[in-house]
Amino acid sequence: MWKAILSPDFFGTILRATTPILFATLASCVASKSGITNMALEGILLFSALFGVIFSSITHSWLLGLIITVVIGGLIGLILAFFVLNLKTDEILAAIAINLTATGGTVLLLLAFSGDRGVSSSIRSVSAPSLTIPLIDKIPFIGQVLSGQNILTWLSLVAVIVMHLFLYKTPLGLSIRAVGENKNAAESVGISSRRIQYIALVISGCLAAFGGFFLSGGYMNMFTKDMSSGRGFIALAAASMGGNTPIGGLLVSLLFGLASALANVMQLMSVMPYEIILMVPYLTTLIGLGVYYYAQKKKKERLSGK
């Protein structure tokens, strides 16, 4: 078992499993910071996985495909914002509508585009390439872990830093946090909360679209029906567990990725019934959540002098 865990492949698996969840987690962070729960992440992931395949095949370029996919992801965020902010729809109901549309809509679009119902194998899509880093790839072990990862995996790590700087070091980031903290207070100093929440949801949609693109153009090299498989919901939990901060989200996503990779190895060694092993990633996350909030509670109690 240790041989399997201490292999570079194991760490590669962690990073691969983390990437889509990390993008979606960041997407959830920015929406939550503005005061809206973006539960449509699951649907945006699924739509983006399909659009990534379709547009990278039309443009013969993964980069153009990615850009178009991200724009569409932003548009879905915009639609959600329109329903929630202009039409005053319940944000959860609007998100459920988007998620259900994604389940059926992706199959419909796939059928219209390729004539297939389950797999996009007949579409010649272009996946995002892996990045070989010169010099580093010569280092034993570490080189094998770091080099050869998908470019989007790197981008997800860069996105963590960018989102951290954006939320905490820019005026717009400050406005987003202010609106999320207290809408009326923000309005009183002249911030349009509606404009800010629109912006936050569009950014959220764009970030989730990166994750969706990675699912079918990096993780896998094709779209398969329902391939988002609840990652959008896991990301919601991961973001909330990470206190809706990009760094916290990264740590929780990595924890989930680690637990997933560990579960894979545990299945290989068949140490216990697979139903229990399949719970490992979720159980780990749940226990982590419990520990975190217990620590938070203790900290609060200490500060209030109880």
Binding site: A4, A17, Q267, E275
Partner: peptide, 23 residues
């Protein structure tokens, strides 16, 4: 032997199979 836990998570299936192939 490995089970995905559903019939649609192709990415998880890929990781499970890669773990088998790498070992």
């Amino acid at each position: 032997l490995a089970y995905v836990g559903n019939f649609y998570d192709s990415a998880a299936g890929k990781d499970l199979a890669l773990t088998q192939y790498n070992n």
